[in-house]
Amino acid sequence: MTSPIASHLGLRVLHQASLLLFAVVLVVFGMLSPAFLQTSNMVNILIQTSSTGILAVGMTFVLLTAGVDLSVGAIMFVAAAVGGKLILGGWAFGGVLAIMLGIGVLFGALNALFITRLAIMAFVVTLATRYFGRGLGLRITETRAMNLPESFYELGAARLLGVPVPVLIFAGVVLLAHLALTRTPFGRQVYAVGTDVEAARKAGINTGAVRFSVYAICGLCAAAAGIVALSQAPAVSPSFGNNREFMAIAAAVLGGTSLFGGRGAVFPGTVLGAVLIQTIENGLNVLNVNPYLYPLITSGVIFVAVLLDAIRSRVLAQANRRRIYTVAQPD
């Protein structure tokens, strides 16, 4: 068995793993290509991160309660498909955005209903709604790529005080989520529910409501991520949002959010994780690596992150084990 000090040290390293990884990535790509470290490229990375990042923020809420949502990519797609139809039908831009966000919340609430009320495993429910959503989206778009008018593109290209709007939206979502998680009673209850549902119930927390809310928030974030993604490439293709749930889970886990619940943070954790994933992809791009290798490399990185999480929770369980006698106790 490891001594308490050694396991404590091990935990410190495990906590900082993603930061270390990030440093390594920056140094390696920086050495391989000078273009990589330029400010413009860094800004680029941030813009590219914003959509996945927002998705990952929503996912963090769900993961903190020891749940999961595999349907976020599909939610993105449905929201984008409906939004595209409406805007092509001549609806006002602002109204369309509101409706898209509403669809996200609705979808999340549907997931939540099945998970909290009917007590079905989160991953089954969201796997089913994922297919349901993809089918619905394809039906709406009639499996054709839908090119959208300028309004989305303008949103993406606009800058406020020199900062690109997608990055601003991302920052806004992160700020709100961070405040909600760290500064509101709801946020702290999310952690409590994830740490120990039974204890949370005993402490008088309405655990059903908390779990319901996180899936709704996750749906809302998915819709917002869809909007930001459209602003960068204003077209709804049949593969829009496909497999993005995976990137979102990965970003959150890389940022130190545990799949076992109760542990993690939007800032800096998830944000760092999302930026890290995008940085790797961007770096591979700058280095002209075969794009077919991207998914391999990212899933490799994710596997490491998940593995670290599993090891960390095992070390923690060992450290928190009940002791029968302590050394200081006399015989």
């Binding site: 099945f114 079905i120 089913a128 709604t129 994922r130 297919y131 349901f132 959503g133 089918g135 394809l138």
Partner: peptide, 14 residues
């Protein structure tokens, strides 16, 4: 269409 069928199946698994 294939998409409607996917939707129906998604409903069926739920």
């Amino acid at each position: 269409t294939f998409y409607t069928i996917t939707m129906v199946k998604g409903g069926a698994i739920l």
